[in-house]
């Protein structure tokens, strides 16, 4: 499989898949979406994270946890080449997506970002209507359908984001008119509108109240029937509630005092939060440091 560097990519609404809950799928039956091998990412002379070796399975929720400054968000953004937009950003090692090197010269970063969508920490709807917020995501990714087809796409995306019933009568209202939790679900709708395969979420609930947080978590569990989800979170209970596997990152200081994040442990979530393999993980989740 290759990721074509085409200028126009036809967007179609993928029908809701009827795949069974992933918990019923044997571990060895899950296909890897990402494979990171000796991967490192940083900015200029600074290495935010290094020595990352892990595989991320399809239609699973993978959580990335760890203290601040361990390069979790840098790693997440490197997975859809969002870091390319930051001057001086660089990666080494290999990050493959369905076996294709994400950083190969012939890979189009725009197409990478279409297939691997992102939801940010703070809800960031555009200064547009609810309808246009969702339609924009599809339009910039080459949607060429009719108005009617766009209407269907917007409805489908809002439905997937569990927001349709709340906004169907006011699609022309500003995205800013929604509550924080609704705005974040609007951003999720915008992210799924281009029909990605993967959703990267960078602390998507950190600005939300507990009820809105639970709505997003329920939504994540629903979305994983169709998407592979990777979430960076500081909320360990959230990671424990929603994810199938969890990666714990910590900081290593070199002889010059430079701090670099590294992967300590990548385990099934239940194991990591009850009987972690590594002492550093145990110390972190029991609050003995961090």
């Amino acid at each position: 499989m290759t990721i074509p560097a085409t200028e126009e990519v036809p967007i179609t609404i993928r029908p809701q898949t009827a795949s069974p809950p992933t918990a019923d799928v044997p571990a060895d039956a899950v296909e890897d979406v990402f494979e990171l091998s000796g991967f490192a990412a940083g900015y200029g002379s600074f290495r935010a994270v290094k020595d990352v070796n892990l595989r991320i399975g399809e239609k699973r929720i993978t959580s990335i946890i760890g203290p601040s400054g361990t390069g979790k968000s840098t790693l997440l953004r490197a997975l859809n080449r969002m870091n390319d937009l930051i001057e001086g950003a660089h990666v080494t090692g290999r990050a493959s997506y369905h076996g294709v090197d994400l950083y190969a010269p012939d890979v189009d970063p725009v197409e990478v970002r279409r297939r691997i969508g992102m939801v940010f920490q703070k809800p960031n709807p555009f200064s547009k209507s609810i309808y246009d917020n969702v339609a924009w995501g599809a339009k910039i990714n080459g949607f060429r359908g009719s108005k009617s087809e766009m209407d269907d796409l917007v409805q489908e995306a809002l439905t997937r984001a569990a927001l349709w019933d709340e906004v169907k009568g006011k699609l022309g209202d500003s995205g800013y008119s929604l509550s924080g939790g609704q705005q974040q679900r609007l951003c999720i709708a915008r992210a799924v509108a281009p029909n990605p395969e993967v959703l990267l979420m960078d602390e998507p609930c950190s600005a939300l109240d507990p009820i809105a947080t639970l709505r997003i978590e329920e939504l994540m569990l629903e979305l994983k029937k169709s998407y592979t989800i990777i979430i960076v979170t500081h909320n360990m209970q959230q990671a424990a509630r929603v994810s199938d596997k969890t990666a714990f990152f910590n900081i290593r200081l070199d002889s010059k005092g430079h701090r670099t994040g590294y992967l300590v442990e990548f385990s099934p979530t239940e194991q990591l939060f009850t009987s972690p393999k590594e002492k550093d993980t145990e110390d972190y989740i029991t609050g003995r440091f961090g």
Partner: peptide, 13 residues
């Protein structure tokens, strides 16, 4: 919710 060392020290007590 970030777990703070101080609050977890209280938990351990």
């Amino acid at each position: 919710m970030t777990i703070h060392r101080d609050s977890m020290a209280h938990f351990h007590q």
